[in-house]
Amino acid sequence: MSTSSKRSLKASPLAKVNTTIAHCFKALSRRDRSASNQQKLNAQVFRRILSLVLFFGIWQLLCLNRFNFFINFENVPSPIEVAQATVQFVTGNPMKHIQASAIRVLSGFTIAAVLGISLGILIGWFKKIEDFIFLPLELLRPIPAVAWIPLAILMFPTSESGMIYLTFIGAFFPILISTIRGVESTDLLLLRVGQCLGAKQWHIFKDIVVPGAMPNIASGLVIGMGNSWFCLVTAEILAGRYGVGYITWESYVTSNYPPIVMGMLLIGLMGAASAYAVDRLTCLLMPWRITKKKSA
């Protein structure tokens, strides 16, 4: 390990040659490694595609054979039927539905993120605030979105705001709880570091507590995003005309089965995609963690 700049000035020419050679070797082995990494990656991609093929293949076979042993596949739409329903949906006016659902989920999620993070920080940091609001929140937390439907209808002026409330409920609690945990787990050592550098409450809060809680907040946001989509079908039971969840529920009511499965898969897909997007975005806010993954 080289320490002071004085020392590195003394480095002999021989040492320089040695380090150059070492660099060449490193570069070589890096190229080897990247080649074998590429192979590994290809094999991984292949296995993952195969898993999807098997999944849909087995599903198709179960439907074709009208499998019926405890679980009944006779009335389950097959992948091909679902694909036909999807084509029909896509050639119709899909954006209306997708847009309606996405706006509901995003609004609910955004409100949940703002409220969840700010309340979570306050509850985690100020004992008195925790005493005042934590118990009522704990009481509301286990209530599932479905149970909120009647109250959502009674409490909100429009069905749109009721639906946003239901997607909000899904995202709010995971974000809140993760934020509280993140703030509470602040390292005493780092608090002391701040104190003996002269930091007062505000700087300790801004530069130590909040960044320290960010990894927890980020995982709360990812889970919250997924949960928001969970609650979409529930929310869109209230819907008038548009929404992916609405199609799913409406198709069930009208006994038109293939679009149900299509709606389910579409929600799964959009939920996964938006959770992934949240994950990436939060990683961008924490450059000190991205590099950690790379170097590991």
Binding site: L189, L190, V193, Q195, C196, L197, I208, P211, W288
Partner: peptide, 28 residues
């Protein structure tokens, strides 16, 4: 109470993980 006129170096590694070396030194 603690203050910046008594600097402290801890046994454990105690740089703030979310600040660069420069930002850590600059913090006080």
């Amino acid at each position: 109470s603690p203050s910046a006129d008594r600097g402290f170096v801890f046994q454990q590694y105690s740089l703030l993980p979310w600040k660069t070396t420069y930002q850590n030194v600059e913090f006080g």
